[in-house]
């Protein structure tokens, strides 16, 4: 605040003046309301310079700066929008890829399961078939054995019967006749059974 006093001191001049408790009304009034010519002239020139500077330089500069900023912001927005679109596109791709991978995995699992089932069915089928074959073979062997045993038995019965008959009859038939007789008998027995 003291600067006011100091500033006045710097520019101080002129003569000592009476110090008064009251401000004189006589010399104060109208002079203050009348513009000093050199100040008016200086004011006109100074303001004209400010006006022309603002009109010709400052406002175009302001407009240019604001337009450039607006353009930069618009570009950035556009770039951001573009980046967003690309990001969304990438996301969609990834999601599609993930979905595809899941489908593929599911397909692989399904295929594997199917293949497994097929292999299993094949193995079971082959096993069944083999078992059936073994069973059949065994059955055939049993049948064959049974036939052979029955044949042997039949022969033995025939031989025994001939022996017995020979002993009973005392005469002997030709061996072939006896055998034919016995076979016929046995067959009849079998047919009765």
């Amino acid at each position: 605040m003291l600067t006011h006093v100091f500033a006045q001191l710097v520019l101080a001049a002129e003569e000592p003046t009476l110090i008064s408790e009251e401000v004189s009304e006589e010399s104060g009034g109208i002079d203050l309301l009348l513009p000093a010519s050199e100040e008016l002239f200086a004011g006109i020139i100074a303001f004209a310079i400010v006006f022309f500077f603002i009109w010709k330089w400052a406002i175009p500069a302001l407009n240019k700066t604001l337009a450039a900023r607006q353009e930069a912001i618009a570009d950035e927005l556009k770039a951001a929008e573009q980046a967003k679109v690309e990001a969304e596109s990438l996301l969609n791709d990834y999601q599609a890829q993930v979905a595809g991978a899941k489908d593929e995995a599911a397909q692989i699992v399904a295929d594997a399961r199917e293949a497994g089932e097929a292999v299993k069915a094949d193995i079971v089928s082959r096993a069944e078939s083999e078992a059936a074959s073994i069973k059949q073979r065994a059955s055939d062997e049993v049948t064959a054995e049974r036939s052979r045993v029955a044949e042997d038995l039949k022969r033995q019965v025939a031989d025994l019967s001939i022996d017995v008959a020979e002993r009973v009859v005392g005469s002997s038939l030709g061996a072939d006749q006896q055998r034919e007789l016995v076979d016929r008998y046995i067959d009849e027995l079998g047919g009765v059974q």
Partner: peptide, 30 residues
């Protein structure tokens, strides 16, 4: 500048406020 001289000679034992003789002295720097 009158004010500075007023400051230099202002005697507060005699007056309440230090003021120049005329209010113009606060504004006229001719």
């Amino acid at each position: 500048m009158e004010l500075i001289l007023a400051v230099a000679e202002c005697d507060l034992s005699e007056s309440a406020v230090c003021a120049p003789e005329s209010v113009n002295d606060l504004f006229e720097f001719r």
